[in-house]
Design a protein around this nucleic acid. Structure first.
Lengths: 122, 122
DNA sequence: CGCTTATTGATATTAGCGTATCATTTGCAA
DNA sequence: TTGCAAATGATACGCTAATATCAATAAGCG
C-alpha cells in the first residue's frame, strides 16, 4: 500500500499563506503568516511543496531561504535593506544571458535589486 | 601611539594570490592559493583588505563568501554548478535598475548567471 | 466508533561559516 | 642583538539555518 498524504489544518494554513502572499516568505514569516504552526511542520510542508513543484526557492545571499508559488511569469527580486522583506519585480532584460563568455553554458540567471521599498523609501 | 601594520610573508602571499587570480576566491581557495596560511590569518587579512577597500565581497546564495580586487569595471558573476568556481562576466544591461516598481529606490543590483563554465561544458 | 498510522511540535542535534582565544613566532626599531 | 608588540595558527567557541528525534495528537478508513 502507498502512504497517502493527510489533509491537516496546518498544511491548509501554509498553502493559504503562500497564496495570500504576493511576496516570497521565509520559514519564519511563514510560521507567522500561517498562525502558529511549528517550525518543524513548516520546514516539512515546504519541503513537500518544493518536491511537487508547487513552490520555488528564492535565495538572497546572507539571508534565510524564501519560497513562493511556482509557475509565475519570469521575474526577479528586490530586497529591502530596511524592512528586510523581499518583493517580486516583474520583467527582465532577457539579454543578461548574453553576458556570459564564449563556451559558457548559461542554464539560469538571477537578478537581485537592493535598496529601499516604497514603504521604507520616504 | 598608533599601531603599525607589519609586512609578513603571509600577507604578501595573500595579496599576490588575489592579484594573480582573475576570479573571486573563497577563504578556502585563498588558503590554498596563498600556499598554506592559517585560516584565521586568511580571515583577518581579508577583513583588513575589505576595510581598506582593496577587496570587495562577492556573495552567491548558499555558498561561502568570495572576495576580489575592488575597483574593477562594473561586472557580474557566473557560478559553475560543476566545478563550483565563480567567474567574472563583463558588462551589464544597466537598465535592470528600471525593473523596480515605482517609488522603490534601487541602490545596488547583482546579476548572477548559473550553468557550466567553458572547461566543464564539454 | 475505534484503530492504525501519518502528522505535529518541542527540542536536541547537526552543519557550515566565521570569530575569539592564547601560546608561540616574528617583524622591526632602538 | 635585544625586546616587545604585532602577527600567526591550531583550535575552541558562537551563531544561524535546517534536520532528526520521539512522545503526543489526530486524520480518515472500515
Amino acid at each position: 500500500m502507498k502512504t497517502s498524504a493527510r489533509k491537516t489544518r496546518q498544511r491548509e494554513a501554509i498553502r493559504e499563506a503562500f497564496e495570500a502572499s504576493e511576496r516570497p516568505l521565509t520559514i519564519e514569516e511563514l510560521v507567522e503568516a500561517a498562525g502558529g504552526v511549528g517550525v518543524a511542520t513548516a520546514y516539512r510542508a515546504v519541503a513537500a511543496l518544493l518536491e511537487e513543484e508547487w513552490l520555488e526557492p528564492v535565495e538572497i545571499p546572507g539571508e534565510p531561504a524564501r519560497y513562493e508559488r511556482s509557475g509565475k511569469k519570469h521575474h526577479h527580486h528586490f530586497s529591502c535593506e530596511r524592512c528586510a522583506r523581499v518583493f517580486d519585480v516583474s520583467g527582465c532584460s532577457e539579454n543578461v544571458r548574453k553576458l556570459a563568455p564564449p563556451r559558457f553554458r548559461v542554464k539560469a540567471h538571477a537578478v537581485t535589486l537592493y535598496g529601499l521599498c516604497s514603504a521604507c523609501a520616504r
